[in-house]
Write a protein that binds this DNA or RNA. Structure first.
Lengths: 127, 127
DNA sequence: CCTTTGAGTATCCAAAAGTAACTAAATACC
DNA sequence: GGTATTTAGTTACTTTTGGATACTCAAAGG
C-alpha cells in the first residue's frame, strides 16, 4: 500500500486547513450568519436580497457547498415557479457561536484596524 | 454633501464584512495561528517552511496585509543577508481565541463533514 | 571571482471568483 | 391566445487572485 506524495499535501491532510478552507470564500460565513439570525428557513431570493450584492451564481455555488458539507438543509418544493427553502442543520448551528465570536471581535476592533491601515498606507508614501 | 451610491455598498459600510473579508484569503488565518503557537517571533523562511506549500510571493503579500491591519509586527534587522522577524501584535493575539474556536470546531466536526461530502457527491451521480 | 544566504521582486500563466444575459414552466393579464 | 411575470437557477465571458520560476541585493567564505 504505497502512498502517493499528494496524499501528504498539508492542506488536504490537515483537518483544520481542510475544513477552514471552506470558509475562505467570500460568502459562506455571511450566509450562515443570516440563516442563523433568521427565524425559520429562508428562500433563495430572500437570501439574495438580504445580502444585496451577491450574484445568483455565487449564491447557488455557496449554498451547494454548504449543503455538501452538511451545514445547510435544502428543501425543494416541486412547483412552478420554484420554491426552495434553506435552513441551518444542527452542524451549521453549532458553528454559529464561533462565527459570532469573530464578528464581535471585528466590531470591537474595527476602528483600530481602520486606523492601522491608514497609518500604514501613509507610511508607504515615504518609504 | 451628496453621498455617492458606492458609499453605501454593504461590504464597505458593514464593519463585520469589511474586517472579515480580510481573512477570506488563503493564508492569513494560518499565518496568525502559526505565529500564535510559536514561542517568540518567526523569521520569513521559518514561516515559509512551516507552512510548506506557500509561495514566497503569497507569504510576502499576506504578511504585508497583516502588518497593514496592525495584526503583525515586522522587525527588520539591517544586515546582510537580511533578517526579518514577525510576531503578533496585541491586536493579533486578541484574535487567536476566536480562530482557535474555529479550529477546535473543525477538528471536532471533521468526520461529519467528510462523510457529508461523500454522501452528497454520491447522491449527485443519480440526480 | 564565484557561490551562498535571506528576504524578498518581476514576470508570466493557471485557477478561482464575479458579471450579465439567458432558461424553464406555470400562471396572470389583456 | 399572445405576452409578461415569477423563481431558482445555468451558460458564457471577464476580472481578480494565486502560483511557478527566475532574478536581485550586498556581504562573507573559499
Amino acid at each position: 500500500m504505497k502512498k502517493k506524495l499528494e496524499d501528504y499535501e498539508f492542506s488536504k491532510a490537515c483537518p483544520i486547513r481542510n475544513v477552514l478552507d471552506r470558509f475562505n470564500d467570500k460568502w459562506s460565513m455571511l450566509v450562515i450568519l443570516l440563516l442563523g439570525e433568521h427565524k425559520g428557513p429562508m428562500r433563495f431570493n430572500e437570501l439574495a436580497q438580504t445580502i444585496g450584492d451577491i450574484s445568483q451564481k455565487m449564491l447557488t455555488v455557496t449554498l451547494r457547498t454548504l449543503e455538501a458539507d452538511g451545514m445547510v438543509h435544502r428543501k425543494h418544493y416541486p412547483q412552478i415557479p420554484p420554491r426552495v427553502e434553506y435552513e441551518l442543520t444542527e452542524l451549521g448551528k453549532s458553528l454559529l457561536p464561533h462565527i459570532n465570536g469573530l464578528t464581535q471581535w471585528a466590531l470591537k476592533n474595527y476602528d483600530a484596524i481602520t486606523k492601522s491601515r491608514k497609518k500604514f498606507s501613509a507610511k508607504k508614501q515615504f518609504a
